[in-house]
């Protein structure tokens, strides 16, 4: 394969994709045990996108995420301990238990956060890109968005602002072809969402979202173009969920043959295969990595369970000036 990413990158991509897979799979178990409340939107099946995109970004860049945000957070390098702690509403969580799954952010490291409002990450991400421009920084901001959000008014408004102001902004549409149970064909006449960008003069691409390496390469090019003053850029990554919309949605409306098609193109398998095929990583090494990541998650659960919750007195003090 030409231009194969370095061994280091390939290993990072596999580790990240696998870490997300474990987080979601094990997280769902914790949810079913009653340890996690509220909404939990698994990223299962879409791991290739966050993984490929974030591997192509630098320290100092920004990301903004969605309601289905665990994968972006992990790919951006979040501490799994603090993520699990947040889901378990503990004081050691990223938001000290004030945010939960849909609001995990790490503003000190440029993660603008997940978002409970579909589409909201787009203007926020463009804003971060504007802040970078005002500061004179060449930082790039990526907003992870969705097929559902592309029909929201701020999609056009903010992408257009990014365009007229030449911002270092990359809009990644994770087109998993559903908004809850609504098929994309019911939401738009043209299901190739990248064309939305083309229509307002934004360089736009489509990529197989289940191919982490392809996503990585495209994002790398996009980030380079942005830093050379040729932003913004739109990337539509086609993908498919492995299950329903959230933990409690059986997803019966998802046709089995479509699901099988995408499961046969599983992004985590592809990341693993790349490491094996391109770098010749032996099975023992793969097993070691997987074992390490599984252990890391168990440790995170242990950490979270042993953490305390915010006290009523701390809470009152925190909100005193509202």
């Amino acid at each position: 394969m030409q231009n194969a990413p370095s061994r280091e990158i390939l290993e990072k991509i596999f580790r990240t994709a696998y870490r997300i897979r474990v987080f979601e799979t094990e997280g769902i178990k914790l949810y079913r045990q009653g340890l996690i409340r509220g909404y939990f939107h698994p990223y299962l099946g879409q791991e290739g996108i966050a993984t490929g995109v974030c591997a192509a970004l630098n320290e100092g860049d920004y990301v903004a995420s969605t309601h289905r945000g665990h994968g972006h957070c992990i790919a951006w390098g979040a501490d799994v301990k603090r993520m699990v702690a947040e889901l378990l509403q503990k004081e050691t969580g990223y938001c000290r238990g004030y945010g939960g799954s849909m609001h995990i952010a790490d503003i000190h490291r440029g993660n603008l956060g997940a978002n409970g409002i579909v589409g909201a990450g787009t203007p926020l991400g463009v804003g971060a890109a504007l802040a970078a421009q005002i500061r004179g920084s060449d930082a790039v901001t990526v907003t992870f968005s969705t097929d559902g959000a592309s029909n929201n008014g701020t999609f056009l408004e903010s992408l257009n602002l990014a365009a007229i102001w030449n911002l270092n902004f990359i809009l990644v549409i994770e087109n998993n072809q559903y908004a809850v149970s609504t098929r994309i064909e019911e939401s738009t006449r043209d299901v190739d969402l990248y064309k939305r960008g083309t229509s307002i003069g934004v360089e736009s691409h489509q990529v197989d979202g289940n191919d982490p390496l392809a996503v990585y390469r495209l994002t790398q090019e996009a980030a380079e173009k942005c830093r050379a003053g040729k932003g913004p850029i739109l990337i539509e990554a086609k993908t498919f969920r492995h299950m329903g919309h959230h933990v409690n949605d059986p997803g019966k409306y998802m046709p089995e043959d479509r699901l099988a098609y995408y499961k046969a193109r599983d992004p985590v398998d592809r990341a693993r295969n790349a490491l094996v095929e391109i770098c010749g990583a032996p099975q023992a090494e793969i097993d070691a990595i997987e074992g390490e990541i599984a252990a890391e998650f168990s440790d995170a659960v242990e950490f979270a369970r042993n953490s305390r919750e915010i006290t009523a007195a701390e809470f009152r003090q925190f909100v005193a000036d509202y």
Binding site: Y62, A64, G110, V126, G127, A132, N160, L161, I164
Partner: peptide
């Protein structure tokens, strides 16, 4: 700005979150 109030308010909020 263009006439895009939701967009410009949102972009302002995002810029503020990012420290401007």
């Amino acid at each position: 700005t263009p006439i895009a109030e939701a967009g410009m308010i949102g972009v302002g909020v995002g810029a503020a979150i990012a420290g401007a």
